[in-house]
């Protein structure tokens, strides 16, 4: 698989994973770009022992985790409290912001796991990316789903 194909296939997914971790669109764009620069640098050494997607997600997740070296906390995006009064066109966008803020409240590893899960990465592969057992990932995914659903219900966002 050449670099151009990889970029068109994975750039949107990588951006979404970065966005779920950082909750900052601009930073997520930057990190996506950084991820693909690293992919380009190391593509020749990729041994095809693992799936190319797993390999790219792994780079992106480590790039995200590297953010702990910066002191800045994950920011929350401003959201009006009364979702009901917002115009219909914007409801989906507001719900998306609310979801991002809910994810931002999760611990670092859970943010990575849910970011990958929301991009339909199979749980076996998530386990491979983060270096946990499959059963551990399964339990974590279940708990995160519960947490997010609870917050959405409490906010009346369904």
């Amino acid at each position: 698989m050449d670099f151009d194909t990889i970029y068109s296939e994975f750039s949107h997914k990588i951006f979404s994973v970065c966005l779920s971790y950082l909750n900052d669109t601009d930073k997520a764009y930057d990190l996506t770009q950084e991820t693909f620069i690293t992919v380009w640098q190391n593509l020749h050494s990729f041994k095809h022992k693992s799936n190319i997607g797993t390999w790219i997600y792994r780079i992106a997740c480590n790039k995200c985790l590297r953010q702990i070296e910066n002191d800045a906390r994950i920011k929350k995006v401003e959201l009006p409290t009364q979702i009901e009064v917002i115009e219909t066109d914007n409801i989906q966008e507001q719900k998306h912001i609310f979801l991002r803020n809910c994810i931002a409240d999760l611990p670092e590893l859970e943010r990575i796991i849910i970011g990958l899960f929301l991009e339909d990465v199979p749980q076996e592969r998530i386990a491979e990316i983060v270096g946990l057992s499959h059963s551990n990932v399964r339990v974590k995914v279940h708990r995160i789903k519960e947490k997010l659903t609870k917050k959405f219900k409490a906010n009346g966002s369904f």
Partner: peptide, 27 residues
């Protein structure tokens, strides 16, 4: 309920992502 959450997540637009030409320039 979680499928709805997933739909909300997927509804986000990412058109602003750089094109392959600009990512090649960045590299």
């Amino acid at each position: 309920h979680f499928d709805e959450i997933k739909d909300i997540w997927k509804s986000h637009k990412t058109e602003r992502l750089p094109s392959i030409a600009s990512i090649n320039d960045a590299i």
